[in-house]
Design a protein around this nucleic acid. Sequence first.
DNA 1: GTGAAAGCGCTAACAT
DNA 2: ATGTTAGCGCTTTCAC
Lengths: 337, 337
Amino acid sequence: MPRRVSSPSAHDVARLAGVSQAAVSRAFTPGASIAKLTQERIFKAAKSLGYRPNLLARSLIKGESGIIGVVFGNPRSIFFMSALHALSARLSQAQKHILMFTAEGKATADVHVEDLLKYRVDALFLMGIGLSRKLAEQCRDNHIPVVLFNLRSREIKDFASVTCNNRDGARQVGAHLIQQGYQRLAFMGGTTNITTSHERESAFNAYLASRGLPAPIREAGSYDREGAARAARNLLSRRSRPDAIFCWNDYMALAAIDVARYEFGLEIGREIGIAGFGDIEQASSPSFDLTTYTQPVDIMIQEVATLLLSPPQLMHSIHRVVDGVLKPRGSTQRRRN
Amino acid sequence: MPRRVSSPSAHDVARLAGVSQAAVSRAFTPGASIAKLTQERIFKAAKSLGYRPNLLARSLIKGESGIIGVVFGNPRSIFFMSALHALSARLSQAQKHILMFTAEGKATADVHVEDLLKYRVDALFLMGIGLSRKLAEQCRDNHIPVVLFNLRSREIKDFASVTCNNRDGARQVGAHLIQQGYQRLAFMGGTTNITTSHERESAFNAYLASRGLPAPIREAGSYDREGAARAARNLLSRRSRPDAIFCWNDYMALAAIDVARYEFGLEIGREIGIAGFGDIEQASSPSFDLTTYTQPVDIMIQEVATLLLSPPQLMHSIHRVVDGVLKPRGSTQRRRN
DNA sequence: GTGAAAGCGCTAACAT
DNA sequence: ATGTTAGCGCTTTCAC
């Protein structure tokens, strides 16, 4: 007798329970019209066979897979990471599942989205990464909701997005630094086309201008720790050294603190103010005590989930901007004046 | 004319290209027997319609979905995080995809594995979380490879696993601490049934015993920062305070350093030695300079990928134990004696 | 090299 | 309440 190699089907269960295959389907469909007794008989047969409905087959018919495609722009981002987990928990409740890709170093999520579309995902969630116009249009044609996270782009204006209030955050950091008496401000940005970084920078610059201050010194780091450290070194080696640095995210700010303190021997806060953006867990560690602007993950993901689960027609061009709050900490505290 | 709502099928393409639907299938199957010319005609038609093969339908026939199920035990673990991304990159090359779940606070991955099985995943990868015996057996019956990551359990002895060499790491840390002259050693563990933590602890204890030293003081923390901090406080408040703490992972070790330095005013290294396990990025920050044992993510994930992609028959009970190396750093450096 | 036909495991009318 | 039938979009014989 040949060893059965694939899992049992509804047919197998039907035969064992002495009912039609359709009855089995109904037994596993909440709210379908089936007699309590037959259902129980079917369940018993199913259990004894180890039957489990094949969701691939169901998806084929229903035209929806229950799968949400997620592309992860920056694998190093702790913020994205916690967002992913929050989303996973949230979508589990809605019986949706996450098909995940990492797109390190790629300019767009195209390759992965291509794959995801073949799996007929119900929606797409792009974290810190964009899409080519062509693919964006195809998603729209196929009525697949696309939600952008912490990123906006002209290419795909007609898609929904959820971002932190970058402008407000940058302004608040700017105001705080000025109020603390820092005068030679600098901005440490990310690499190419990170809209998040751009937004924070331009709002920061605009705010300083509105207060009659000169444009800040500027240095671009990169995603990794070493890139951030290099940028910090460049800034701190200048003849006219800045007395405060606003880093586009916490991760870079922590690297900057390390460089300032251990390579330049500066006292953080008094001799050099450093502020970040995002309030990752390490920021509140007393070893860093980093002034930053919070990105409220839970609220943001709540918005994302709502968008992902709502019918595509309803979500065109919805842009949610979620406010954080400034967390003034020791890294921008001038102990004496 | 009604608006087309679902994506075009192979049939649509066939009609447009003037061929049979089977031909379309062949055109998209690498190595299938089809004339160059027909193939091109089909591709053109496909492109103009925006056709993309439906992988759900293909999976239904082929009996394999191309999907690997991943359950994430501890969402806070930076180590798991980088492992996930490494795996994603690796599996992309093999045209496999990751269906991901977060299982925070759950004892087993059962609920999620149940879902994953309905999607007919080709293999399962469980990071720091186990499976009930019942479900484990069902996976075996269905010939679904299961790979455990940084976890072993008696329940599922017959599944493959990849772990770091916890015993070697614990021994090396022990030897290092003794050599540095620390005498009142302590161990800070994780919460319930974390086999990784147990292994490290028992190997640490065994090593100390072999050197004729008493069993270390013991304190259990939990996953989160606050739990770790509390455990550290308990240890440091004892009448006979330990002079060195081996923490079961880096995350807790960093929290312990913060507590020791900022709450107890201890000089790290000289007054209190602290060692971790894993070598996460923050460990090498000069702010912590944490002595630790590396967990080589890339090598481990390489092993995992090989196991996940190999036929289930071949992988019964394969247990890979990957060696790391000790990184002695300042947090266990007794500057003077 | 290509088309016709069967069928993967399921849901959704349509009967009864 | 239940069985029969058709069909989701594809792969895979089997002819030719």
